[in-house]
Design a protein around this nucleic acid. Structure first.
Lengths: 153, 153
DNA sequence: GGCAGAATCATTCGAAAGGATGACGACGGG
DNA sequence: CCCGTCGTCATCCTTTCGAATGATTCTGCC
């Protein structure tokens, strides 16, 4: 969906939203409720929508409140040195780390099994365990998490 | 101005707003700008709209105390510059690139479908195409290849 | 106004991945 | 000597992926 249809879709959504707001507004006015309260609700709603959009689009939290813009500088380049403390704290074993690295290189379970001279089942076990420890449900997610935490290169 | 006219006015405004947002979105996406930046703009816009609504409706200023948005941008250590030439030469489309990035973030096809407002089938199609263009058979491999070639962060 | 490139969605199938468990031998430290 | 950790392997079952196609709709462009 794009082009005219695209625009029309969003336009209609926007229109409906506004109409709904108007409806709510009238209901509130008729019911003699505080206009201020209504305004706050609407404002809060839009703010929430904005924040939600931020979260949805970026996929990461948008923190509201503090007045600072922090910038994370994760990778200063240089020869990668794994965060042993992090690995330790997560209880990741050497073998699991090995499997994790191979996963990051894009190998399938079968390929890893061949390279490590073990059965595919064993690889899957290691993978499952390391996913668990990383809190990942997918290998791609595990890779993303591991890299962002300095566990693997 | 009231009644239908009233509603129509607001509807049109809403529609135009959304259309504008879409326009901005595509500009940003096509120009490969940071999605985070875009999200912040949208969020700030909606928040501002909410505040404006509050002021307009109540007829009195809404005191906004320290409402700032803190966004954690992952790696501005040399703001990643995608290799447009490489992307071009491989014939990777904007949508495919988008899917590729989400894959790298560890999302499943279903999650991507929800975030992009398309069907899972569509996501799978984009994924297949981009795998083809990258010469990858697995998503993890695609991520590895794309990163090593400066296609994605 | 037609055409190429996109984006969209669908169907079907087989392969890969993942979850849940259970088990067994090796090794090391109480 | 017993227990805990690690590494190994297995089975069963569900979900997800990926390949191969075909079709439709939009958009941009000549």
């Amino acid at each position: 969906m794009s082009g005219f249809k695209h625009l029309a879709f969003y336009g209609v959504c926007g229109g409906l939203l506004i109409v709904a707001l108007q409806f709510v507004r009238y209901r509130f006015l008729v019911l003699e409720h505080s206009v201020e309260v209504y305004a706050v609700i609407v404002a809060a709603g839009f703010a929430a929508l904005g924040i939600w959009l931020g979260i949805t689009i970026t996929g990461r939290p948008v923190v509201v409140k503090e007045v600072t813009v922090e910038v994370q500088v994760p990778a200063p380049a240089g020869p990668f040195e794994p965060d042993l403390a992090k690995i330790e704290s997560l209880g990741i074993t050497p073998r699991e780390l090995e499997v994790l690295q191979l996963i990051a290189e894009g190998l399938s379970n079968k390929e890893m099994a061949e390279r490590l001279f073990v059965s595919e089942n064993t690889v899957k076990t290691h993978a499952s365990r390391v996913f668990d420890k990383l809190g990942a449900g997918r290998r791609t997610q595990a890779v993303q998490l591991a890299k962002s935490q300095g566990i693997i290169a």
